[in-house]
Structures are given as structure tokens and as C-alpha cells.
Amino acid sequence: MEQSYMVEVDSVSMRFNLGIDKGFSLKQWFVDVGKGKKKTKNEFWALTDVSFKVKKGEVIGFIGSNGAGKSTMLKIVAGVMKPTKGEVKSYGNICPMIELGAGFDTQLTARENIYLNGAIMGYSKPFIDSKFQEIVDFSELHDFLDVPVQNFSSGMVARLAFSVATVVDPEILIVDEILSVGDMAFQAKSEQKMLSMINGGTTVLFVSHSIEQIKKMCDTVVWLDHGHIKMIGGKEVCDEYVSTMVGN
């Protein structure tokens, strides 16, 4: 009965080396040697021993303060990062909606970017051909198809990115705070689209700071705190989280 789970996260830990950002520099090396300083280890565990399983069609939400490890968790499930320890298994094609529009080349037109970004998301050419009209219709950018994206407003870019990303029916959808894009009308429309994707039986992993959204959409809520799972369960986790935050 292994297949009844879509995602299995088994005691995952993720270590970042904060010092790595500076890397090795000749100048720093001389300074350190001069002062007789040893190289300091500046480690940071973004996640420590996190385990959970997601059933098919389940919507799981992650809450927690900034830097709690929510986005890192999603990136590990998406395959962008390899965990330092532990294992992640997923069964099905994943659609990661982590910072949309990352694959846009601003010098290219909207039309060209639909194909480029589609390819980055892993779509095939016939698939994009067949969905092209749907993407354009949803984004409502008919008049700007042959305009380079660098001339777009940020709202227009977000609309285009959202439309490209949500045209698939993925088995596993990974969402990192993207529901509020564009103007008010488009926000309502994109939230509607997201809800219909979720109700379509997709398995969803979802990060949001909007407790209301989490409550409305998620079956299971995971509360991450400094890389640990503080609480996992139903909507009552949200209330607990809110009361703790207010209490502080």
C-alpha cells in the first residue's frame, strides 16, 4: 500500500553553512592568519529530523515564522535541494510553483516566454501548442503577446507566469505564497483557479502566512518552528499557532 502516499518525507535534516557565502578569499586568509584566527564553522540547521507523509489528494499546509524552514522543505520535496540527511520520496509529476516567472527572459516576447517557461516547467511542445490559447485567455494579455516582457508591469508578468504554471494538471502541486498576484480581479480569479486545481484531486503542499487561507484550504497543517515540527494535525494547529503568536 506504499502508493497510497504521494510524498514521503523521512527524517529529513538540512544543514546550511552560513560562512560559505564568503567562501575562501585570499585577503581573508591573510587577515585570519595574521590574527591567528581559526576558521569558524558557522552552521545552521534549517530543518531537523522532519518526517511526514502526504496522501493522494491531501492538501497539506505549512505555517511558522520567517526562517522556520518552510520554503526549504518545499524545495527539498521539489528536488531543487538534496537533504543533508534523510530521504524524500515522491510518486507523481511535481509542479513547483516557487517564485513564478523565474524562467522568464525579459528580452523575449510574451509568446516566446510562454514556450521557454513551459519548457522549464517540463512541458512538451505539443502540450504547449494545445494549451497556448488557454494560457493567453487566462492571462488576458492578448494585446501584448509580441511585446518583450521587460516592458510589462510586474502585475502583468505575474499574471503570465501564473497562467503558464497552472495550465497543467499536476499530481503534486507545490505552492509557496503565490495566490495574490495581479490586481484585485485577477487575484480572485487566480485563487479560484487554485481552488479548482486543489479540488480536482491534486495533492498539494502549501506554504502561506495567511492563516485564513490555510484554514480554508488545508486538510493537514504542519507547524514548523526553527526547523522542527512543533505540531502536526488538523485545523486546530492554526488556532494553537495564532494563540502562541498573540501570546508572545
Partner: peptide, 9 residues
């Protein structure tokens, strides 16, 4: 990098 950091490929 901005791509590598967000989508697996």
C-alpha cells in the same frame, strides 16, 4: 542560478 534554485532540471 535563479532557475536552478527554483525548479528541478
Amino acid at each position: 542560478f535563479s532557475l536552478i534554485n527554483k525548479v528541478y532540471m
